Measured scan of single mutants.
Amino acid sequence: GSKLPPGWEKRMSRSSGRVYYFNHITNASQWERPSG
């Protein structure tokens, strides 16, 4: 298991139950796992 880039964390969408990734530094969110 590799770590996520700085700022990123795994989140669960309440509406759909899907996992997404959220960056608390930039407030960005995306479905794809961030690389870096």
Rank of each mutant, 00 (worst) to 15 (best):
S15P: 10
K3W: 13
S16Q: 09
S29K: 14
I25Y: 11
G7L: 02
K3L: 13
S35P: 11
R11K: 08
P34A: 02
N23L: 03
M12L: 14
S13T: 10
A28K: 15
S15W: 10
V19Y: 12
K10E: 14
W8I: 00
L4E: 04
R11N: 02
K3N: 13
G36A: 13
R14N: 10
F22A: 02
G7N: 07
A28Q: 15
S29D: 02
L4C: 09
F22N: 01
P34T: 01
R18Y: 05
S13Y: 09
M12P: 04
S13K: 05
A28G: 06
N23W: 02
S2V: 11
R18H: 06
Q30E: 02
W31M: 05
N27G: 15
P34V: 01
W31T: 06
M12H: 10
Y20Q: 01
P6A: 11
P6R: 08
G1T: 11
G36W: 15
S15M: 09
V19D: 03
G17W: 02
G36S: 12
W8Q: 01
P6N: 08
E9Q: 09
N27R: 14
G36Y: 13
I25S: 06
G36P: 11
L4T: 02
H24T: 15
P5R: 03
S29P: 01
K10T: 10
G17R: 07
N27T: 06
Q30S: 07
F22Q: 01
H24G: 06
R11L: 07
G7M: 05
S29Y: 15
I25K: 07
H24R: 15
R11G: 03
S2M: 11
K10L: 14
T26P: 00
S15L: 12
S35I: 12
Y21F: 06
Y21P: 01
T26G: 02
S2W: 11
H24M: 11
S13P: 01
M12T: 13
W31Y: 10
S29M: 15
V19F: 11
R11M: 07
L4V: 03
I25H: 11
R11E: 02
P5M: 04
S35F: 11
W31P: 03
S16P: 06
R33I: 11
G1R: 09
R14G: 10
Q30K: 03
S29I: 15
P34R: 00
R33W: 12
G7C: 11
F22P: 00
S13M: 12
Y20F: 09
R14V: 12
T26I: 04
N27Q: 13
N27P: 00
R11A: 03
E32P: 07
S15F: 11
P34L: 02
W31E: 05
G7A: 04
S16M: 08
K10G: 05
E9W: 05
P5F: 03
Q30F: 05
T26S: 07
E9F: 06
P6G: 07
G36T: 12
S15C: 15
R33F: 14
S2F: 12
N23R: 02
A28D: 07
L4Q: 02
N23G: 00
K10R: 14
R11S: 02
M12V: 15
G36D: 14
S29T: 14
N27W: 08
P6E: 10
P5N: 02
N27M: 13
W8M: 00
G1P: 11
K10M: 15
P6L: 10
R18W: 04
W8F: 01
S29G: 05
E32S: 10
S16H: 11
W31S: 06
V19Q: 06
E32M: 08
W31Q: 04
Y20G: 00
G36L: 13
I25D: 08
M12W: 15
S2R: 10
K3S: 14
S29L: 14
E32T: 09
Y20M: 01
Q30G: 03
P6M: 09
K3D: 15
F22L: 03
S29W: 15
P6I: 09
S35M: 12
Y20L: 02
K10F: 07
P6T: 09
R14T: 12
R18I: 07
I25P: 03
A28E: 15
G17L: 06
K3A: 14
A28Y: 10
E9D: 04
W8E: 00
Y21S: 00
P34I: 01
I25Q: 09
P5S: 04
F22D: 00
I25T: 07
S35E: 12
S15V: 14
E32G: 08
S16W: 07
S35Y: 11
E32L: 07
P5H: 04
T26Q: 05
N27S: 08
E32K: 08
Q30H: 04
Y21L: 00
W8Y: 01
E32I: 07
N27K: 15
S16T: 14
Y20K: 01
G36N: 12
R14H: 12
R33V: 12
P34N: 01
S16N: 11
M12C: 15
L4Y: 04
G1L: 09
N23Y: 04
H24D: 04
S2N: 13
